[in-house]
């Protein structure tokens, strides 16, 4: 993929294959009909909780809010035995406030960077942001791809930028946000997944969305990306991880996503090094359902910190 031989979308789709969205819809509809009972349900709820990247990405975030978020990630609920979340996900300026609380714990610090959510900043600025977040102690970087370049057909540029960010990450894991709602078609999402995976390391992620557009993670775009990860694994042996983000608010939704993982990538992806949920309200619902399984009844809403603003 040298600049003398630019990669076109058509060539890439020819190479990696296309997606038919009607058939895709049929496949994912079957996940929703799976019915989980008893132990298998508790296992799924606990697994999902351990995969949450507990997220706050607002202009009004403060050190205090981030501190509360970190404590929530460490101890999601007093009553039910809810495992701690996988990570907190914050803006780069908040990483240094999270670090003292989470240092030495199992909860990682993820930071969005690269002019999140639009990515519309010069590459040098974006890379500087990544380095700053890593320097402050971010274990993971969530970058956005250059959707403008992708839709303009400059696929090499998109890939080169992902490469550059990966290098700026150093030892931190990278999550590449495709922003599926802006890529729109199944073909585009599959092609962009390969574009990213070809320059990623084992354990790096591809991620659906920023959560800042109207449509976020869906079972369908999750499936396109899981299929791409599986095909990339068969072709290269490299295990890429996956993170759907935005719009997964209920335990039932999360469990359905996990069934997709189980039936597409299998047991090796059913842990938080290979699969994450970018979410905030989800963790409370998982706790609520685990409490229900434990006590046999739903608890009063005020026993969970419902308002997404208050952790």
């Amino acid at each position: 993929m040298k600049s003398g031989n630019p990669l076109s979308l058509r060539k890439l789709v020819c190479k990696v294959g296309s997606v038919d969205e009607v058939g895709l819809g049929e496949r994912v509809a079957k996940y929703s009909t799976r019915s989980l009972k008893k132990e298998s349900k508790i296992f799924a709820l606990r697994l999902a909780a351990s995969m949450v990247d507990l997220t706050t990405l607002e202009g009004k975030d403060t050190p205090g809010k981030v501190a509360a978020l970190c404590l929530k990630a460490l101890h999601p609920h007093a009553g039910a035995s809810v495992p701690c979340a996988a990570a907190v996900c914050v803006y780069p300026s908040m990483v240094r406030h999270a670090k003292p609380i989470l240092r030495g714990t199992k909860v990682k610090i993820a930071s969005v960077a690269t002019a999140f959510p639009s990515g519309q900043a010069p590459l040098a600025t974006r890379l500087a942001e990544v380095r700053a977040a890593v320097g402050d102690g971010a274990d993971e970087i969530d970058m956005v791809i250059n959707r403008g370049a992708f839709l303009a057909g400059e696929l090499n540029l998109v890939q080169d930028e992902i490469s550059a960010v990966r290098e700026a990450c150093g030892k931190s894991a990278l999550k590449v946000i495709l922003e599926t709602s802006e890529l729109e078609t199944g073909d585009n999402i599959r092609a962009a997944s390969f574009l990213a995976m070809q320059v990623l390391r084992e354990g790096d992620f591809i991620k659906t969305s920023t959560g800042k557009t109207a449509a976020n993670a869906t079972l369908a775009n999750n499936q396109i990306m899981l299929d791409a990860i599986r095909d990339h694994y068969f072709a290269t042996g490299v295990e890429i991880a996956m993170k759907p983000a935005g719009g997964i608010r209920t335990a039932k939704q999360a469990v359905t996503f996990l069934i997709a993982v189980k039936e597409t990538l299998g047991d090796r992806w059913l842990n938080n090094t290979r699969y994450r949920f970018g979410a905030s309200a989800l963790l409370n619902d998982l706790a609520r359902q685990l409490m229900k399984e434990k006590t046999g009844r739903y608890q009063a809403p005020y026993t969970f910190s419902e308002a997404s603003g208050s952790y």
């Binding site: 009972k37 349900k41 996990l258 059913l270």
Partner: peptide, 20 residues
């Protein structure tokens, strides 16, 4: 064979469904 046979996905018993 486009796929390396050594690269197998693991569909084991980590998460079995209970009868429903």
């Amino acid at each position: 064979r486009p796929n390396n046979p050594a690269r197998e996905l693991l569909f084991g018993d980590l998460w079995e469904f209970d009868p429903a």
